[in-house]
Design a protein around this nucleic acid. Structure first.
Lengths: 236, 236
DNA sequence: GCAAAAGTGTTATCGCTACACCCATGT
DNA sequence: ACATGGGTGTAGCGATAACACTTTTGC
């Protein structure tokens, strides 16, 4: 039987349909520390508890598109880094019913956000060591997102999604230290990072955190793509 | 309002429910080559076309449990390596209706399977270079599973799930060569692999592929766990 | 002039790569 | 005795890790 001959409205009848949601672990970096955006849940059950941002999937959107909508509605940002990392589907994970959730993590630039306004919407940025109890299995999602980010940032240049367009070497080092939760030798870090030749030095200096000032650099995507095209692996 | 006061049967009404499926990319290794298990689809639409194994998710099971059932029903095996790698949720990816699929990959020991019987169920093992056109987005799933496997096997000891309990060093080298699709220097490979001290040499030899015979080894999970506990990274 | 952060080089060690021959055995 | 695959060692090179002092400038 060909596809044309089938009545498509009937082929999968009898299968049970399920509620599907997306949840986003949103990371930001405030020049000192990597942080996580959490919200007070607005719907029952568990209204008022701390939670990741999420929503049920839209009927006419893919999971990734739904996640982008969630991000836009909660941060006002578009075109940000977003990657799926795991589904959560245990029976009974949600007391409100059988819901499968697909979890994403996102990396955003805090300098693009009107950070004050976040607080008005019952949201708050938390350092990784001060994350409160979250609803459902959201604490597990957060832990697994952090693990994923550590692995990812070591070999792929996703860290630049957390930094402003222009950043200093001390800034990016603090970012890595904050994610790895350990000190890194500054001479070795700079040497290795610069050796990949994927940063462009600008003439400007950032004097906001020292008298001497640190040069601003930009991430050079073209150079990075060349670099990976040769089959090399980034590693920091 | 507390959870106890809510009528749980109503809290998420109004949200649209969706069909959710699992698909499994099943890898096996036949001492020469890594292979993929494919089936001729048994249901409309696209009945008779080559396809991954899969099914709709069971009402009372998590995705992973559903995938285990799929694997058991198609291979007769239980307790095998199984890992989720990506969801596929494009609108219109399935002409039969709106279906989200969560894709898993699995690694199995061909010596555990009654390999002949597979053919009787309209199934076949394909080498990676001879994969036919598959239904829906299954070719994409396969490609992404292969990429994932390459990355995974380099740093985690998942390859042992593809080998018999006792295996020779030439065997495991062929496995890696088959996944990486390139030759590896035997002296360096053995040196590095043995340096991790995660293999136990048995007294026995496999004489099936040479006059001299190659010693059988076993994977030592305890040693490997010690090794990773110290924070070291496996790399092959 | 001093405090505070930015920036810079060298050395020792380790791991990787490349490479070629002997060994054991079945025929 | 020979063909076949199994098994071994080394030297050169490049990458990493450990380590301390000088520079700039606002105060």
């Amino acid at each position: 039987m060909s596809i044309a001959e089938l009545d498509m409205s009937k082929v999968y009848t009898g299968q049970s349909k399920i509620l599907v949601a997306v949840d986003c672990v949103v990371f930001g970096f405030d020049s000192n520390e990597i942080k996580l955006l959490l919200f007070r849940r607005k719907v029952e059950p568990l209204k008022g508890e701390w939670s990741l941002v999420g929503s049920f999937i839209k009927k006419d959107m893919s999971l990734e598109e739904s996640a982008k909508v969630v991000l836009y509605e909660s941060t006002g940002l578009q075109g940000v880094f977003l990657e799926e990392f795991k589904t959560y589907s245990d029976i009974g994970r949600d007391p409100g019913g059988r819901v499968i959730s697909v979890a994403f993590y996102s990396l955003i630039r805090l300098d693009q956000m009107n950070t004050g306004s976040v607080e008005e919407y019952d949201a708050h940025w938390f350092g990784l060591s001060e994350i409160p109890d979250l609803i459902l299995d959201h604490n597990k999602m957060v832990q697994q997102a952090i693990e994923r980010l550590k692995i990812k940032i070591r070999r792929r240049p996703v860290g630049f999604n957390l930094l402003p367009e222009k950043f200093t070497l001390p800034q990016i080092q603090v970012l890595y230290e904050s994610i790895y939760q350990r000190k890194i030798d500054d001479r070795n870090f700079r040497k290795k990072l610069l050796s990949y030749d994927i940063l462009t030095k600008t003439g400007e200096k950032d004097k906001s955190s020292s008298k001497k000032g640190a040069y601003y650099y930009k991430f050079n995507k073209e150079k990075f793509d060349e670099f990976t095209a040769k089959g090399y692996d980034f590693e920091l």
